[in-house]
């Protein structure tokens, strides 16, 4: 009787996703698809187009992991999550990884049972205001009302910034970035504050994008990156090195167009699985790196395709340039 109860209780909790010591790679390969948590719609980072295809810089990280583990960048089930839902969804096992413009902080890394697998976008918190307001600097915003998303580091940075500058402000919170954009458009608030990349994305969705400007300068560091559950180091390594593969590919000049040609550089050979056995250490197929680069492309391609100069977002590489070109992107070697 007791045994039975214990078993039923355990299986119930296992069903609700609280089983410890999961092997995410085997789970994903058994399912045949990767569950990846993304935003509810942020142009350039993760948003679904009219045909229901997810696109964006964060989406490409999901696709890279799917390409590495399943050999097909399209075998991803995208789970749209609000800022408030994202960590619980990952902790409970509802998703295999989270790639949702999420800031890497000590608290999140150390107390939530999660691991950040690197940085795919270096961001900072900024402000967007109506041009008619005549504001050019964040310091001019004393007493203003801000629209922001609940449950983000934005709330904390804003409080810190105004406290340290001895200024006051009002806030109007909302659940999704679409709602805070609505508040900004109707005039519920004077300024919209969020990570600068999001501000550029939201600006393109305004009725009149030219009526608003994103102020220069940021008030925080926001390294955004993919997140996995703690306790599955194998999976942690796979996500980390899938992202690194995209960065390294750009550094080595490999992209989706030339990936089929012959390279002399031995590191390219190791990256694409033509020599060495790096794949064995990760527990992946020999073609994992090749699949990422051929199906998703390198980091630079993903950047230009989703948020670069040719897109409405028109974001310059800036900090997100390779280290060798003055940016912060730096992948450890493929060796």
């Amino acid at each position: 009787m007791n045994k039975l109860l214990q078993l039923s209780a355990a299986s119930l909790l296992a069903v609700t996703g609280l089983s410890a010591n999961a092997d995410t790679l085997s789970d994903v390969q058994a399912k045949g698809s990767l569950s990846c948590g993304v935003s509810t719609g942020l142009v350039g980072f993760s948003s679904a187009d009219s045909a229901g295809n997810w696109k964006g810089l964060d989406v490409d990280v999901c696709r890279a992991v799917a390409a590495a583990t399943l050999g097909d960048a399209n075998k991803v089930k995208f789970v749209p999550l609000t800022a408030k839902e994202r960590f619980t969804a990952l902790q409970s096992g509802e998703i295999d990884m989270l790639s949702r413009n999420t800031t890497w902080t000590l608290t999140r890394d150390a107390s939530l049972g999660l691991n950040f697998a690197g940085v795919n976008y270096y961001d900072g918190q900024g402000f967007m205001v109506k041009k008619s307001l005549g504001v050019t600097n964040a310091k001019d915003l004393d007493g203003a009302t801000f629209c922001l998303q609940a449950g983000t580091t934005t709330e904390l940075n804003l409080a810190d910034y105004f406290r340290s500058n001895g200024m006051s402000y009002n806030s109007s919170l909302s659940d999704t970035s679409a709602q805070s954009k609505n508040g900004f458009e109707t005039g519920r608030c004077d300024a919209l504050t969020s990570d600068q990349s999001q501000l550029y994305a939201l600006r393109t969705t305004l009725k009149d994008p030219s009526s608003a400007i994103v102020l220069d300068g940021v008030i925080s560091k926001e390294p955004l990156g993919p997140v996995v559950r703690q306790g599955d180091d194998k999976w942690f390594n796979i996500v980390k090195w899938s992202l690194n593969a995209m960065v390294t590919a750009e550094e080595l000049g490999v992209n989706s167009h030339n990936v089929h040609s012959k390279f002399k550089n031995p590191e390219v050979a190791r990256l694409l699985g033509q020599s060495g056995k790096l794949n064995d250490y990760l527990g992946l197929d020999k073609k994992w790196g090749f699949n990422i680069v051929s199906q998703v492309g390198n980091y630079g391609q993903s950047f230009e395709r989703n948020i670069g100069k040719s897109t409405p977002l028109n974001i310059s590489r800036g900090q997100n340039e390779l280290w060798s070109k003055g940016g912060l992107l730096y992948s450890p070697p493929f060796r």
Partner: peptide
């Protein structure tokens, strides 16, 4: 007794799992 034990086992299991995942 069965109901009490069920909830005890469920809560106990939950906390054990939370602990093993490194969540505060």
């Amino acid at each position: 007794l069965a109901i009490v034990y069920f909830f005890y086992a469920a809560v106990d299991n939950m906390f054990a799992n939370i602990e093993s995942r490194g969540i505060q």
